[in-house]
Simulated assay, not measured.
Amino acid sequence: MPISIAAENNLRLSDLAPNQVQSEIRAMSVACSAVNGINLAQGVCDTDPPHAVVEAAVAAMHAGHNIYTRAEGIEILREGIAQKLASFNRLQVNPETQVLVTSGATGAMQATVMALLNAGDECIMFEPFYGYHASTLRSQRVTPVIVPLDAPDWTFDPERLRAAITPRTRAIILNSPSNPSGKVFTLTELTALAEIAIEHDLFVITDEMYEYFVYDGVTHHSLATLPGMAERTITISGFSKTFSVTGWRLGYLAASERWMPAISYFHDLVYVCAPSPLQHGAAAGLLALPESFYTGVAADHQRKRDVLCNALRTAGLQPSVPAGAYYVLAQTKNIPGNNGRERARRLLQDTGVAAVAGSAFFGSDASGVNRGEDLLRFCFAKKDEELAEAARRIANIRY
């Protein structure tokens, strides 16, 4: 029987799909694997997880914790998160009604956008931005509006933020400490941002995944603790980076009771719940690990940062030294190539070290040129011996 023309026309991609391509981060990871290189492209954080965290997860599997949990997460973990938020972030939340354990910070972001924003809304992001944030917005037909920060220190201009707000603006995404720049917003900057959010009645979605990765005496501040911000701020974090378990996909968020039922509903719809035994592992980490573990994370990664930045300087690839997170943006105009993608692949060809084109984290200027084409992003959350080898290879290149 012949197929009708109408039926054939129904077999097509969605309106969103044709404009989506593989993440440049993942593309470089694949290219790196093909040459058995050293992957400084993806934030995999391949240092060893704390023993207590892994053992508790394994024990939970053997104890039968292998079925769905309550949608919001297991009680002991939600209570541990609330205690951590109180002691570290100075944020008071009710673990029963204001904490949601999620399938990674990406799951938290997806559920939040689904619950709070509508198609056609605008959401402001600061540049350099994390590409997954922009893609999550677009997946819900929300328009990302880019507000550039000023290099090399990525300073925040409140008036530039004000100028970007329109009647369609509903929210701001704040990533501090930031991937990819390592920018840590100061209390003065956060106060100015909070005043604007209150003035224009905006949500602020904060991605604080790298909150323990701060250097040179810098302090991390949570926006939700500022006056007037608790109800309008959704605070997102997780365990992937702190406990070096990126493959576990385990995050969480804290929000007002007013928003939590809808956010929890959409997380349940897409993910059902975060992995049950892994929740037990994270809970054990929150309960068992001393304060020295967290200060040690910062000290260890500051040392790794300095190893990589010194190598980049030696190679003539001037780094923007990050105050937080575990990435470095470096100038790469002297590497042969017409754009960041070509330069990243040339560096991989010459050294076996993978980085990501800065264009993955920037928008275009008025002439249509991407503002990140002359940058590469490097991740330094690697085991010492591997990072040392990558640094040696980078330091020895000359272009």
Rank of each mutant, 00 (worst) to 15 (best):
S256V: 02
A56R: 03
T206V: 14
G131T: 08
L278E: 08
R232W: 05
F88E: 12
I5T: 14
T351K: 11
I205K: 00
N310L: 13
Y210H: 14
G73D: 03
R341G: 05
A230E: 06
R90L: 12
A344Q: 04
H280M: 03
L269Y: 13
F213V: 04
L376F: 06
T155W: 05
W154D: 04
I236G: 01
V204I: 10
I81L: 06
S359T: 08
Y326H: 13
L329W: 02
P336N: 09
G107K: 00
R258F: 10
T351E: 09
A57E: 09
A284H: 06
M209C: 11
Y212P: 04
K383I: 09
I38S: 02
D157H: 12
G358K: 11
A395S: 15
S87M: 12
F361M: 06
A360G: 05
V184T: 08
F380V: 04
L250D: 00
N36A: 09
Q140N: 12
V30M: 09
V272R: 15
G358C: 11
R371I: 12
L312T: 00
R90H: 14
F203S: 01
K183P: 00
A119H: 09
G358F: 08
R160I: 02
I38E: 02
A151D: 08
R160C: 05
R162S: 10
